[in-house]
Design a protein around this nucleic acid. Sequence first.
DNA 1: AAAATAAAAGAGTTTTTTGTCTTTTATTGC
DNA 2: GCAATAAAAGACAAAAAACTCTTTTATTTT
Lengths: 143, 143
Amino acid sequence: MFSKTCEYAIRAVIFIAQQTREGGRVSIKDVARGINSPEHFIAKILQELSRKGLVQSAKGPTGGFYLDHASLQQSLADFVRAIDGDRVFSGCGLGLKQCSESHPCPIHHQFKSIRNQLMVMLESTQIGGFTRELEAKMAFLKQ
Amino acid sequence: MFSKTCEYAIRAVIFIAQQTREGGRVSIKDVARGINSPEHFIAKILQELSRKGLVQSAKGPTGGFYLDHASLQQSLADFVRAIDGDRVFSGCGLGLKQCSESHPCPIHHQFKSIRNQLMVMLESTQIGGFTRELEAKMAFLKQ
DNA sequence: AAAATAAAAGAGTTTTTTGTCTTTTATTGC
DNA sequence: GCAATAAAAGACAAAAAACTCTTTTATTTT
């Protein structure tokens, strides 16, 4: 569904949101440990998200990653779009470039419905909304 | 959503179903032209499906690919499973190996619902069921 | 100012996926 | 039996995705 990069990105950002809920910052090392991902790989991904303004970072001692008020309210869809683009939401299920309402592939309409539901779900889910479940160990970000 | 291999596979099999609806066979060349795919690549894919008994083939002059009665009734889900496995239907949205009902990722439940709908859709769609739309040019397999 | 810390940047490597080319095997029609 | 046809098989090649390592830059603390 999503690229590995995107999976790591979402897990990382949810992790950062939880870890920094009372201010503070979290280092790449801790993120990598917290979501069980390759350290340098997740570093690259967070750099990218940082450049796009979807996560915040600070260098030096006491530095690390965190989310400002705006970032905390971004939806999962925003992060997915930033990493994987919107092929997830609008690409043809059978890979046709020209697939559209007026030139549909055989499963166009069925797929459209599924993809729309996926999009609604991702649009309506805020990245900062999982903290409680994670605290209560009712949800997990690794293994 | 699906691998390129799987996209080609589905398009190819739908094409074969349509082209051979009154008996007869269709060559790899024609399949490749009909769905606009790399000839040798789709050949590999059909070989694989042939080995698994999901499409039928015959060598030599008058040879080619076709679908027997059983294959025509297979669902899209069967072909997807044969190529991409069932990660599409059951894999974790965030890539966690251990994600499950009792050890869920934060979006486990939401994803499960979407994936189930995808599965129901693919299970309830027969590969041989698109012939009419294709004939009427209300659906397309290339461009 | 110097040392320590932590992200940013850049340049790889490895693995997987996608795609190509050549040879072999089976079947048909003459 | 021979030539032609078409799929099967196997070995490569290219591109993309996933991952690693090293150096640089910015910041803080002492």
